[in-house]
Amino acid sequence: MALPVLICDDSILARKQVRKSLPESFDAEFQTAGNGLEALAVLRSQEIGLVFLDLTMPELDGVGVLEAIKAEGIDCFVIVISADIQPEMQKRVMELGALAFVQKPVNEDKIIGVLKQYGFI
């Protein structure tokens, strides 16, 4: 069965980059969100298995989304995709329950690597 996946990034290009980096063999159904608030609206109303989440976004940033997921007990895996890869930031999102941290700009190798590591493919 296809995995419901949410790609959340304020940039259209970045969303496309994630989509394009995913392998054909990855059976998923995609939805997108342009900021943290849109993402939460989707997460609250539907079952989502995996979220690709950007950190720096308008309205509500990625850290805010992670906090809400944790507070509301929403059940989903989150892979953070960010250009900001400072150790302090990585530590913070991991503490908030993120599964993995991928540095922007993304490419196939990075995405496939992390999907394999956590058994999605």
Binding site: I12, A14, A83, Q86
Partner: peptide
Amino acid sequence: DCLQEIINVAMGLASDKLARFLNTFV
């Protein structure tokens, strides 16, 4: 949109380098 994203990522890379170099969180 493309330019903005490239600039965001460039800023992220730069701030990461700066943070390591200055030994502080940026």
